[in-house]
Design a protein around this nucleic acid. Structure first.
Lengths: 145, 145
DNA sequence: TCCTCATATTAGAACCATTCTAATCTATTG
DNA sequence: CAATAGATTAGAATGGTTCTAATATGAGGA
């Protein structure tokens, strides 16, 4: 059932994708399986909906942009993707859901992971009454030196 | 020249606004003077373009939404406002341009300042080759406890 | 295998914050 | 006060995202 993959494209066959989807409680549909492959086949990556859609189309996967949006949000809700907010009017999704932060270059829209251990945020005060801290996001904005 | 300020509505008259605009290298037009008043009359605040426009209209200031957008961006470029990115598809502008960070409640879109001294980010690694760090933004995401 | 149906997918329209356009005003300078 | 660079404006355009309601499909049961 699982087809051989060339060396170039690291293994992430349908069986893996299906397993991951089931673990996340998502029905393994043709589109979700294919998108899972694109997303997690290579290492950590940051990608937007339109870009992922283009990539899918280029790879011969028949999927609508709406489904790509749906899928990215479902994956985020399921915890297998993380949404990164670094600029208004554009969303990035990060396949690395572990604790880490980002460099962001506004000029060329580059997002780069910073491993968790590197950064520490100290002195975080009490959150406002009636709220609890959900996550601490650090964006280090860089520009051409 | 500096006038006494009342406790309730701190004074921010046209003379102040004009002075601030000139200092920023911006021509003190009727609209900019009025918006400067709205923005800096009270203490620190976070506001979006549409909200500021509504506020202006409510205050009887005749100004177009386009001008509000232009003005917010010019003020940001001039360094008298700071743009805060906390969610896709919506921009906030902060009248506090000093070094500080934010709590953000996604549920009710509340932005709250955290004074600079409180927070420290350590272990920031070298920025990517050819770039320099411009700013470190920390957003502490909170939710109803 | 074949039904059934809850769930997914889809094309295209709708949305909405923001930006653009090109026409009209207005501060500033001479 | 005239000239003009710069600012404002209404309305159209943009662009990423979400919605709609019609169609398709995976999962479980007969």
């Amino acid at each position: 059932r699982t087809e051989p993959m060339t060396a170039k494209t690291p293994r992430y066959d349908n069986a893996h994708a299906v397993a991951r989807l089931k673990r996340a409680g998502l029905r393994p549909t043709r589109q979700r399986i294919a998108l899972t492959g694109l997303l997690f086949r290579h290492g950590d990556r940051h990608i937007g909906a339109e870009a992922l859609h283009s990539e899918a189309i280029a790879a011969g996967i028949r999927v609508s942009l709406a489904t790509v949006y749906n899928t990215l949000h479902q994956f985020t809700a399921a915890g297998i993707l993380r949404q990164v907010v670094v600029e208004p009017a554009r969303s990035y999704f990060d396949t690395n859901t572990g604790n880490h932060q980002h460099f962001y270059n506004d000029e060329d829209r580059t997002l780069i992971d910073i491993p968790d251990q590197a950064i520490a945020v100290s002195g975080v005060p009490q959150p406002p009454k009636g709220t609890a801290i959900e996550r601490v996001d650090v964006v280090i904005r860089v520009r051409r030196a």
